[in-house]
Amino acid sequence: MLILQDLAKTYRTRAGEVKALDGVSLRIDQGEFIAVCGPSGSGKTTLLMMIAAMLRPSRGTVQFEDRDLYQMTGAARAKFRARNIGFVFQMFHLVPYLNVLENVLLAGAVARSGDGRARAEESLQRLGLGHRIGHRPSELSAGEKQRTAIARALLNRPKLILADEPTGNLDSQNAEGVLRHLQSFQRDGGTIIMATHGLAAQGFATRTIDLREGRLA
């Protein structure tokens, strides 16, 4: 499903060049739950952003179902991302002025997948947020915020979910709940790539990848 070939990313800073990723090659099949582990600054988020078609590599290619993402135009990549990839972030990234339902529907506007509202409501019910759909993010607990973000990620029925430290701001109970929802997506045939520090999170993964200073350990 996903083939990463010799991926590298170099940032230029005032202090000089920083290699965030250096020659990562990887093959990920559909239905896998990949945990990307490694200390802070090891390149986990950079790797996720490249797979998300949001960060052009300095070197190498990202092939998603035989399509080279960075050969596409920016607009085509944006559309591709909307239809195929869901995101879950550590900081939730919910829009503060929209309620729970609207935050979920935000993902549907671009993908135009149709019947978004019914699916959003159904998804929120399944995630235990049926009673919260009219609430603003500021009125939710951390666990509820992350479940809202998962509902948003699932709305367009993506093939891949990229999760960047999704349990980083959650207590163990909420973290486990979130991971179970992600696992359920994977069991339905979806693919998950999750950057994480947590050992508990790694327990849900079907494969763990260790990154050290931008390289596969």
Binding site: M54, A78, V95, V110
Partner: peptide
Amino acid sequence: GLLRALGYD
């Protein structure tokens, strides 16, 4: 950033 990630042009 979120909107761009979600595919908004």
